[in-house]
Amino acid sequence: MRVLLLALRRLAASLPTLFVVLAGLFLLLQLAPGDTVDALVAQMGGGDPVMMEELRRYYGLDVSVAVQLGRYIWRLLQLDLGFSAIYGKPVSAVILERLPATLLLMMSALSFAFAGGMALGVLAARKVNRWPDTLISTLGLIFYATPSFWFGLMGIVIFAVNLGWLPAGSFEEIGAGYTGFRRALDIAWHLFLPTLTLALIFLATYLRIMRASMLEVLNLEFVRTARAKGLSPGRVVRRHVLRNALLPMVTLIGLQAGTMLGGSIVVESVFALPGLGRLAYESVVQRDLNTLLGIVFVSALLVIAVNFIVDLLYARLDPRIVT
């Protein structure tokens, strides 16, 4: 019950923010020269005035910005995200189609980065200033400094083009008609490289935070007490240090969930995945206002949801924090 109340309070607090973000973005996008008809004509390589006028009327662009904004807000109040210019169907349908791929990629990358970062961070902290620590920290620095599109392309060149072990891109085998477990395996096989690419940069951050946090907690008094009780080093780390050291990591997940959505544009393009990032990019280039605003809306909801879960996790990890 308390959780539900908390959820409702959170949602109520985020509603005005959401509204300001959407209206602000709408106005901001009016500053970009050109509208969706210009973008369409650009894609076709030519158009003529009759056709363009007809299309502007069709997309509702023949009225003033104020009227357009008014129409948009009115629709939003009715929970209608409008019609996508690029795809010719409701924005909600377009986003729902793309959401699974993005969520899957994001979740697996986030879990991988979190687990890997945690393990490597703990290892580095326990062997601090010895060779495993140096090796792990150097690797972390390399991952962090390398742009993800480069990782992605190199992964494709090595594992797809040269070795032929993994597919070069796409979400699943097209037209193979797999179902059930076979399909899940096929998707996993296709998402291996993209997940790795997206996760590596985040992994570097997690491992550094984990290492620093572990070192800090290891020096605290209660750890000394635990050791004095005669607990084995492994047990001290697992039962006493880890739990406390995890707090900053959990904070980071909340912060990075938003970044992951944005960061996936590059990975989705390189691996030709049908995700939200690419849809957002396409919407900007094509000046498809409704779709873009819809994506912002959904992304904001996602970030709010993730942060809500993070709050719950805090309470679970450290009972002293009362939510």
Partner: peptide, 17 residues
């Protein structure tokens, strides 16, 4: 197949996708 990234196109050609 929709592939928007030009480097990815080359990779898809070379792997026979």
């Amino acid at each position: 197949r929709v592939i928007t990234d030009k480097s990815a196109v080359a990779a898809a050609l070379e792997t026979g996708q």
